[in-house]
Structure formats: C-alpha cells, structure tokens
Amino acid sequence: MTAAIAAEGLRKRYGEIQAVDGVSLEVEAGEFFGVLGPNGAGKTTTLEILEGLRRPDAGSAEIFGLSPWPRNPALLPRIGVQLQASAFFERLTAGEQIVTFGSLYGVSSAQAVAMLDRVGLAEFAGTRAEKLSGGQAQRLSIACALVHDPELLFLDEPTTGLDPQARRNLWDLLREINAEGRTVVLTTHYLDEAEILCDRVAVMDHGRILKTDPPATLIRELDAPTRLTVESGALTAEHARELLAATGTEAEVQDDGVSLAIATRTPGPVLTLLAEQDALRGLEVRGATLEDVFLQLTGREYRE
C-alpha cells in the first residue's frame, strides 16, 4: 500500500536560518501522526512543504505517491489543511463560509452546511465568523478543511488558546475523523494531546527529526524514575531516607513543606514503607510522560 506521506531529505532555508534540515518521514494511510517541537523547530515549514504551499530547497516529498510541488490539482481534493491561524472571508456567517469553501471543490450547499452539524456548529450557521468563540472558530476551520471529504488532513496547532473543555471536545472530533479512516497529521505544543491522540510522533528541533515512535515506546525508552508524592508532615524527609536506606531502596527524597516527594525506579518497596508509616495521605504516583521525553530531547531552555 502506498504511504499517505513519504518525505526524504527535505531542506528549506530562509536567509541564515535553516528551517528544515534533512527531514525524512513516512506516514501510513489511516495513521494519526504528530509532529512535536519547540518554537522554531521547523514543524510548520515541514507541513507547508508537504501540503504543497512551499517549495523545498532540496529533498523530495510525495503525498499518495504524487509530488505536492508544483501545486498538483490531482492532490488538492484528497487533502484538507487547517492552518495555524484561522482566516475566513470577511463579513460572512459560518454557514456562508462553509458553502463558499465547499463551492471551491464542487460540493453542494446542502452537503457543505451539513458539515457544520458534523462539527457541532449547526446552531451557529447564521453567526458571523468573527463573532464565534475560539473553540467554535477552530471547529469551523476544521469543517472547511473537511468539507470536500479529504483522505488526508493537516492540522497545525488546532487547539492553541482553547480552554480545557473546548480542547477536550475538539479531541473527540479529531478521534472521530481518524476513526473514519482518514490520515491525520497534527502539530501541537500540548504534549498530553499528542500522547492521547497520536499513533506515532516525530520530535523535531533545529529543523531535524530527533526521534519517531509511538508515544508509549518513547516513554518506555526514557527509563525515568517513578515519582511518588504524599502530604508533608506524616513522615520527614530525613526519616524517609533512613527507612529507605535500611531496606536498600535507592530513591531521591525531597520535602518542600507541602509535599514529600520520592523518586525511585522501585516504587513497590516505597509504597509499602509509606503504608507502614501511615503516610499515604494525598498519595500521587506519576510515571514518565511524553513531556519528559520532549524535554530530554530538546532541552529545557526557554525559547521565544
């Protein structure tokens, strides 16, 4: 079966900035694929090359076995694109927007308006786009990308700036879209989002892909300690260290006055010790996450 996306050695430079530096990746049909990275990692430029919006300086890209550049009319009906910033026609309602987008692909008005119901916006068909909330505008943007029933959907940070409820609702929609057999490629800064939604993720930095794997595989490879926290007071950090040393359990213990935190690769004996000391109040157990993987690969320094 032809891969939905196949890219080899993509490069793109803007003056002194090497935005994309030898990116190679393959995305299978029906896969939910995430592209992660800090600001300036090259995520958006990579997607724009794959979408046929930018010409690479070097390398090759294929979408369903066809080159997206120069703009390929045979590919346009097969892909949908939701850009990082939503842009709608001025002074048009949500219904008028979706009908206009649909007409570009020969989609009837009735089919286009039905897509608003698909994304939960039917009651806002008469509302002008600029009056929609952030979550509603993002749903309209996705509806416009889906109106012609594409096989492949590109989503560039679709949940940025949304409140937790709007994000979760959008996640449900994206799961449904993928479950229908569509290939979804997502860029996001929300690591929990990628961990929950994506079959595989590629972590990018400085224009290069550092690792590509399922989130669970990346987390297991990190081999990070388990972190257990309980309320301060029932057990001091010094006493905890003494008890752990007596059992031969390697652990790092810290107490900030609010929580006693114990980091260890052998959590079983630690839980037993806490239970014996009646110190389980407020217990939280946290393993590694995709965020830990991301920070290990890309570093912790702040970037604009």
Rank of each mutant, 00 (worst) to 15 (best):
V107D: 01
I98C: 11
V99S: 01
I98S: 05
L83C: 02
T93S: 15
A87C: 10
L92S: 04
L116Y: 05
L104Q: 06
T100Y: 15
A112K: 02
A114F: 00
A94V: 02
G102D: 09
L75C: 03
S86V: 14
A112H: 01
I79R: 13
L116T: 03
R78Y: 12
P70E: 06
L116R: 07
G80Q: 08
W69F: 12
N72K: 05
L75H: 06
F89P: 03
A85Q: 15
L75G: 08
W69Y: 12
L104G: 00
T100Q: 12
A85M: 07
L66V: 00
F88V: 01
V99H: 00
G95T: 01
A112S: 15
V81G: 10
A74C: 02
W69M: 08
I79V: 14
A87M: 08
L76K: 14
P77A: 11
T100E: 02
Q82N: 05
G102Q: 08
L92Q: 12
G106K: 09
R71W: 02
L83M: 14
R91D: 15
A114T: 03
F101A: 11
R71H: 09
A114P: 06
S108H: 07
P70G: 07
E90F: 04
G95Q: 03
Q82S: 10
L83W: 11
A110P: 02
